[in-house]
């Protein structure tokens, strides 16, 4: 994991503008600019370890912003950004971000063997039962299709080890039987999903 790069970006984002300090008459688009500086303004993150936000359902975004504000999901920069958000801020940001376009389908077909393994794991662990057959999520369940591979792997590891506390326990439950090697295959497959 590229922590130094992440930290540099974090610092840059804080300097760029503080989304957490609303100025009068500032539009939601202006307030969200620092978010998109890291997460990508077209819904696709170009930055390792930082997830793409395009195509995420508003209810999922609202839950995550809430967890960041309440420090129930701990990522320093996100906790800092959201700490003074009102309930309406949480709603407005999630509605705004939910309009970002979904990441386009992958142009990389991937290694056939790994793709086959990943696809089989999706079926075996019923990922598509909640995230949808198209892995596009719905309501409180995130889109995972074409998410950044290293972020997917990290999220799965964190859920499995209970270091990322989900809103409910569903992902902790779902990741228990999944091995480290399988996490790698799942992330590989989901990032290249089409």
């Amino acid at each position: 994991m590229s922590t130094p790069r992440f930290m540099r970006l974090a610092a840059a984002a804080v300097l760029l503008c503080a989304a957490s300090q609303p100025l009068l008459a500032e539009t939601i688009a202006e307030r969200a600019a620092p978010c998109l500086a890291c997460h990508g303004d077209k819904g696709v993150s170009e930055t390792p370890d930082i997830p793409s936000l395009g195509g995420q359902p508003a209810p999922y975004l609202l839950i995550q912003l809430y967890l960041f504000r309440e420090k129930q999901r701990t990522v320093d920069i996100m906790n800092e950004m959201t700490k003074s958000f009102t309930d309406d801020d949480l709603r407005n940001f999630s509605d705004f971000i939910a309009k970002l376009p979904a990441p386009p389908p992958s142009t990389d077909a991937g290694e056939p063997e790994r793709m086959a393994r990943g696809g089989a794991l999706i079926t075996a662990h019923r990922c598509n039962s909640c995230h949808g057959l198209d892995l596009a999520g719905r309501e409180n369940i995130p889109r995972v299709a074409n998410q950044r591979e290293e972020y997917l792997a990290r999220a799965l590891r964190e859920y499995k080890s209970n270091t990322r506390h989900g809103y409910d326990g569903v992902m902790a439950e779902a990741t228990q039987p999944i091995t480290e090697a399988q996490i790698a295959d799942l992330a590989y497959y989901i990032a290249r999903f089409r």
């Binding site: 839950i63 709603r91 079926t123 039962s129 909640c130 719905r138």
Partner: peptide
Amino acid sequence: PEGNADAAKLAPVAAPPL
């Protein structure tokens, strides 16, 4: 059940955070 479109529509319903 795999490939069952009706079952595929079901997922836990989480309460809104606010």
